[in-house]
C-alpha cells in the first residue's frame, strides 16, 4: 500500500522520496499511540476525578506530546534545513535554561552573547553544511578556547574557573551534544542514501519511548529507588522495564534503519543507557541548583532540558557508533 501517493507532492517535496513512505507510517503509528494515550488519560480522569494531580500531569504531558510531535512533523516537511533549524531553536531554548541556572557574573556578558549569537548559529551552520571536520570539533576546540578569553575582557576574576566551566558545560550539552541529532543527516551510509531522516526518527523514538516507558513501569511497579539522592522518582523496576521495552521497540524498528534486528537492538540499548545516564546527570545539576524543573516551557514536562536530558547524552554516542560501524 502506498500512503505517500495521496499526500500532496508539494507538501512533502523536501522529504527525500526514499524516506517518505516510512516517515508517514511512523507518524501514523505515533499518532495512534497518542490517540490511545489520550483515551486512557480521559478514562483515568473520568474515574479518578479532575482533582487527581498525577492524572492531571499525565494528561498535560500527553497534550504536550501532541504539540511536540506536530512540531517535529512540520520541521521534517522542511527536509534537511527544517530539521537543522528545529534543533538550532531547541539548542537555543535549552542553553537559555542552562545558563539561567549558572552563576555567571556581569563580566561574562560578552562571552554569553558569543555563546548564544555566535557559537550556536555557527555550529548549526556547519551541521547544515555537512562539514564533519568542523562541527565535530568547533565547540570543544574553538569555542572552548575563545570563550574564557572573552570572559577575561570583563576584568572580573571572582570564581573565574567555575564560571568558565559552567558556561562551557552549557555549550557542550545544549549546543554541541544536541546538534548531533541533525548531524545524523550528514552520514553517508552505503545503501541507505536519502534515508537518514529515518535515523533521526529512530533516535528520537527510542530515547523518548525509553523515558516514557521508564515512567510508566516506574509508576506501575516501582519499589526500589535507584538513586534517591539524585533523582527520587527513578526506580530500579522503571529502569529495567523501560530499558528492556525500549530496546525491544528499537529492534522492532530495524526495517527503517541500516541495521539488522540484532544491531538495532544493540543501538537502542546504547541509546537508552546513555539516555538514563543523561537523565541522572542533568537531575544532579538541578538538585544542586535547588530546582525541580529546568523551566516551564512544556506543560506537564517542565523545561526543554527536562525533555531533552536523555537526548543530550545519547545523540553524540549514537552518531559516532553509526559513523564508526556503518560508514566507510
Amino acid at each position: 500500500m502506498t500512503l505517500s501517493a495521496d499526500l500532496p507532492l508539494q507538501l512533502s517535496a523536501r522529504v527525500p522520496e526514499a524516506a517518505r513512505e516510512a516517515t508517514l507510517w511512523l507518524f501514523l503509528g505515533v499518532g495512534a499511540v497518542l490517540v490511545f494515550a489520550s483515551l486512557v488519560g480521559a478514562l483515568l480522569r473520568w474515574r479518578l476525578g479532575p482533582q487527581n494531580s498525577v492524572v492531571a500531569n499525565l494528561n498535560a504531558r500527553i497534550k504536550a506530546w501532541w504539540v511536540m510531535v506536530a512540531v517535529i512533523g512540520l520541521a521534517m516537511l522542511g527536509g534537511h534545513t527544517g530539521v537543522v533549524l528545529l534543533f538550532g531553536l531547541v539548542s537555543f531554548l535549552a542553553l537559555r535554561e542552562f545558563i539561567t541556572l549558572t552563576h555567571t557574573r556581569r563580566g561574562d556578558h560578552l562571552a554569553l552573547l558569543a555563546c548564544f549569537f555566535l557559537f550556536l548559529p555557527l555550529q548549526y551552520l556547519f551541521v547544515w553544511q555537512n562539514w564533519y571536520g568542523m562541527f565535530s570539533i568547533f565547540v570543544p576546540v574553538y569555542a572552548f578556547l575563545l570563550m574564557p578569553f572573552l570572559a577575561c575582557l570583563g576584568h572580573d576574576t571572582t570564581n573565574f574557573l567555575a564560571r568558565a566551566t559552567q558556561t562551557q558545560w552549557g555549550l557542550m550539552i545544549c549546543v554541541y551534544a544536541i546538534s548531533h541529532v541533525p548531524a545524523l543527516l550528514a552520514l553517508q551510509i552505503p545503501g541507505f542514501a536519502e534515508r537518514n531522516l529515518l535515523l533521526v526518527i529512530f533516535l528520537i523514538l527510542v530515547v523518548q519511548s525509553s523515558d516514557v516507558l521508564q515512567y510508566v513501569w516506574g509508576k506501575l511497579l516501582g519499589r526500589r529507588k535507584i538513586a534517591p539522592n539524585v533523582s527520587p522518582s527513578k526506580t530500579l523496576e522503571g529502569f529495567l522495564g523501560g530499558v528492556a521495552s525500549a530496546t525491544a521497540l528499537g529492534a522492532a524498528m530495524w526495517w527503517i534503519t541500516p541495521f539488522t534486528p540484532l544491531q538495532a537492538a544493540g543501538m537502542a540499548l546504547a541509546i537508552t543507557l546513555m539516555g538514563f545516564a543523561g537523565g541522572l546527570v542533568m537531575s544532579a545539576i538541578k538538585r544542586d541548583r535547588g530546582v525541580k524543573d529546568w523551566g516551564h516551557l512544556i506543560e506537564g514536562h517542565g523545561g526543554m532540558l527536562d525533555r531533552l536530558d536523555s537526548v543530550c547524552f545519547s545523540a553524540p554516542i549514537f552518531f559516532h557508533l553509526v559513523r564508526y560501524f556503518f560508514t566507510p
Binding site: I99, L113, F116
Partner: peptide
Amino acid sequence: ENLSRVMGKGEFLPVPLI
C-alpha cells in the same frame, strides 16, 4: 529575577535568560 544578568546597566545587547 535575572534582568540584571540579561541586560545590566551599561550593556547594549541582551543575553537571553529566563
